[in-house]
Design a binder for these strands. Structure first.
Lengths: 339, 339
DNA sequence: TAATGGTGCTGAAGCGTTTAACCTTAATCG
DNA sequence: CGATTAAGGTTAAACGCTTCAGCACCATTA
């Protein structure tokens, strides 16, 4: 259907090889006169030729495509804007690096199959948004597929990552709330498989400990993205000693908490302060607006993509992980502890 | 690096062709004894073999990959959850159809280049989330790439589409607001290049007209997704005759409107009713919760994907567009017109 | 005049599959 | 007993591209 390199060669009256050299501008490898170049480009133009990416990938060794591999379900079912901002960053950076994006959102049940599928030649590398202990990571290394983790640390030293300094983020939240005078604080954490959630918890715990009001075990509740049950949270809010503040590990969770809190009849922030994480755009549009620890999501995503591009280019050497510090973004949902 | 079909053949002691036949289970084409099959599968297992998708695509004629082509910038910069729900639907359906997803989010400046890139052999078809008058559509048809539009009608009869009945959606909003007694209503519309925005406007206009309170021209304001300027909206809200209700063409816009309205000092819904479109999850979490015309985003996305899969399978014949009716979802942001 | 070197190109071998066409062997038939 | 036929494969030509190795030609140089 589409024109092939052969047709271009015929029309320009040269060999296929010559066309290939000109198209890839492999200067130095072989010299081609300006006149011949000119003729070839004209033929390309006239035929509307575009090289076949499959053939190119097969013959050469690069496809200029990377996979974005996500945890299924959990990721697109969240409506916090995290996903959108991340995709934005990833797509931007990929484009800037001249890479195309193949989306992988399979169940994580058949990790081996997923790894094999990723090794089918279509991609030069993989950007992973997965649990930090995901077996897929090691499998990709085995298949020697350049891999970078985003929004998670990596336990495999050969796999670099780009993420927020989540421990610092947790600490920031803790220091801020205690500085407001809060002593009894609830923490809604994420999955224990998420290094981000775990780190935020640890940082938060340390901050509270340093402030002399250690986090109670029964004040740590897991509240993943999706339609998690919030009744334990409601109970904890009313149980003595009643918390006067909540640190939610994500804006997503914070927002759902706000609705819950309204139902109970507590006022934010007079009765209860709430702080989230991510500081996505909609924090400005809730009522009251949501105080949140801000991580630069597009930046982190983009940095991850750039690292991956570099690994693909130069081999996996010298790829160095990157950790971006978060900053506190104070809005209306937090205030002094009630006396 | 990865095992090839050749190695499998050698290990199983058969020819490459035999392996190919067994792997693709092309029964009827050639017969292979159970014992040979068995040996081949064992070799596959032992070598961890997975066919190279590029070679397969080159030799055969299918890649089992489709492109999801989006309007750049506009799409991931929205935080309303539309994008997330759509991606969810698309990813799900693609997986169900055995298709992989290649993401295309280029600028729409170089449409010809984009079309050529889509014709580079990597994809069997394209799912488009674009302006309804986008020149890319016709270009893809020229290149005879199976194409389906989602969330937009198509002006090219050979390109089927899956979308919401947006005109009905507009009508529903109009009938509901007029039934509440509102006579002066503001409409925040989207881009004139979006068939959804245009259709919703038309349906809304018709409904108001039928109710005997035609929509004033100065009560139609464009408010696209991104950081559009809202001062004209603020002005219109205070200008006589003062609107008592607003129909926003998307939840995204409605949410930003709510913040704006709070600044002005109007109460929702006592002073001003607000109705959005999409009824994404966060409508349940705003304060007050947001009344909205609900379209089934994942369903529409999935139907589009299924149509595309069918077109790829059976050729472009008999593909029939699908239009899903929306329903009204009443929450707290709308109420009777103030007397 | 022969050797050397640069210029400008071409031939052909891959890359890993699919698939139409053909080949071999042994059993079956008339 | 020679001809069919079925079973169970194999051969080799694509698919569209990259790239190494060479080759012909002309202009220098020794």
């Amino acid at each position: 259907m589409a024109a092939t390199i052969k047709e271009v060669a015929e029309r320009a009256g040269v060999s296929i090889a010559t066309v290939s050299y000109v198209l890839n501008n492999r200067s130095g490898a072989v010299r081609i006169s300006p006149r011949t170049r000119e003729r070839i480009w004209r033929a390309v133009e006239e035929l509307g030729y575009h090289p076949n990416a499959l053939a190119r990938g097969l013959a050469g060794k690069k496809t200029h495509t990377v996979a974005l591999v996500m945890q299924y379900a959990s990721i697109f079912s969240s409506w916090s804007g995290f996903t959108s901002e991340m995709m934005h960053g990833v797509a931007d950076a990929a484009h800037a690096c001249g890479l195309d994006l193949l989306l992988h959102t399979r169940e994580r049940s058949d990790v081996r199959a997923e790894a094999l599928a990723l090794a089918d030649g279509r991609v030069d590398g993989a950007l992973l948004l997965r649990d930090w202990d995901d077996p897929l990571i090691d499998l990709l290394v085995e298949h020697s597929i350049p891999t970078v983790l985003i929004f998670s640390r990596s336990r495999n030293a050969t796999v670099p990552y780009a993420c927020c300094d989540d421990e610092l983020g947790g600490r920031i939240a803790g220091e801020y709330l205690t500085s407001l005078g809060h002593r009894h604080i609830l923490h809604l954490t994420g999955s224990p498989h998420s290094s981000a959630a775990v780190d935020r918890l640890r940082g938060f715990q340390n901050a509270l400990h340093d402030a002399g009001c250690a986090l109670r075990t029964d004040h740590i509740l897991e509240a993943g993205h999706a339609g998690a049950d919030f009744t334990p949270v409601a109970e904890a809010l009313l149980r003595e000693p009643r918390p006067t503040a909540v640190f939610a590990w994500s804006d997503d969770v914070a927002l759902r908490l706000m609705a819950e809190v309204r139902n109970i009849g507590l006022r934010v922030p007079q009765d209860l302060s709430i702080i989230g994480f991510d500081s996505t755009e909609f924090c400005n549009h809730t009522h009251p607006t949501l105080t949140s620890v801000a991580q630069d999501i597009p930046l982190i995503a983009a940095e991850g993509m750039k690292m991956l591009a570099a690994m693909i280019e130069n081999g996996s050497e010298e790829a160095h992980s990157i950790v971006i510090p978060p900053v506190l973004c104070i809005r209306e949902s937090t205030g002094p502890a009630p006396s």
